[in-house]
Design a protein around this nucleic acid. Structure first.
Lengths: 204, 204
DNA sequence: GAGCAATCTTGCACCCCACGCAAGATCCCC
DNA sequence: GGGGATCTTGCGTGGGGTGCAAGATTGCTC
């Protein structure tokens, strides 16, 4: 995909970033977000306190970084779908694409970070921000596909916002249920409902 | 509505809270969020630095407080709609209820705070958190209305999330357009679209 | 209406954290 | 292999969040 032969410098950057993200999530899970000092994280990642600030705006951003990468993939995946495919079919495929790499269960580290961000108030804002970024990018692709304009029409943004709403609700359900259905099925189900306009179930 | 005769103590609390919120928004607009120190805000509101922390978790929370109050009203308004009314009609009325108190144009202080929160990255997270809280409350009311359960069914949360998505997109459009249509019309329009399932406009 | 208990504000102190700056290290490329 | 670009690092500073205890204010009761 995006692999213009990477120089040594950028390789190290990626490795450092990865190390910091992983250390941040691990320590935050192990001992709680408050007790995972940035100093600890940077020590575990083998970088200086100052470098951490060069990479991330704060602890929350580091923890959300993995999810951000994943979430952005949805817009990218939609762009890769065949042009003739019906919109909501393409969207459904795109929304499920992050789970393609997972074998059976979603990546445990991703799951842990989501669980962390949705339960810790100090992280929730960053989590929602992350989704907002991905949503914005998705709206752009939807606009391309449907011949609408993000700046002019409500449509592409409504679609993107609705899709992310469905993904978030499905994910939350999956996380909070004892023996949940596969997350892909929950997402599919949620998308089907929003695409159908969510008619009142109690109104016959 | 919720006016169980207020004691002197609670009156002062409300007044202090109000003063802090107003000072926070005003100063943040005037000189930028970064340059509006909490010290300045508390000085303007006539309270101590420490008291501010007793009321709000941070600058962002204080600025978002007005919007939070407003946003929570939507769930409350939905609960007040007649039981027989079709769901999406009731929702539309509820979503428009915050604008009832405005004469012609929405409250300028509210507008300013929204503009601030959506443009300043350091505030965006708190803004989204605020909407998430309101969304959660809305889902609860939708569940009551439709005989569903928030913990069991995707439906009420999907509806709430979709409604807020529509409101946010409409608001954003209203804020970013030179001579926008009335915000109530934009919200109505957005809700109509999501309730119709957002069919692909380019697919005949 | 006076005193007592509950609640809240305030100041103090401490620690975490974000960021500007300048110097040193590392990498890229010719 | 050398010069220029880029990045890491350490230092210093200032803002901000919070536990704690003391002082002030309110509410309640007799």
């Amino acid at each position: 995909m995006t692999t213009p032969p990477l120089g040594l410098r950028d390789q190290k950057k990626l490795a450092r970033r990865e190390a910091m993200i992983q250390a941040a999530v691990r320590l935050a899970v192990e001992r709680g977000v408050e007790n995972a000092l940035i100093e600890d994280i940077t020590a575990a990642a083998g970088v200086s306190h100052r470098t951490f600030s060069n990479y991330f705006g704060g602890k929350a951003e580091a923890i959300a970084a993995r999810h951000l990468d994943r979430a952005r993939g949805v817009a990218e995946a939609l762009r890769a779908r065949p042009a003739g495919e019906p919109l909501w079919d393409a969207i459904t495929h795109a929304a499920l694409s992050p789970y393609k790499a997972d074998r059976k269960r979603p990546d445990p580290e991703w799951t842990a970070s989501i669980r962390l961000m949705t339960s810790e108030p100090s992280l929730l804002g960053e989590f929602l921000k992350t989704n907002a970024i991905a949503e914005r990018e998705l709206a752009e692709v939807v606009a391309e596909r449907t011949g609408t304009k993000v700046t002019r029409d409500l449509y592409p943004r409504l679609v993107a916002a609705t899709v992310w709403a469905a993904v978030e609700v499905a994910t939350d359900k999956w996380l909070s249920t004892a023996k949940p259905a596969p997350i892909t099925q929950l997402v599919r189900n949620a998308l089907r409902q929003v695409a159908a306009g969510l008619p009142d179930p109690s109104a016959g």
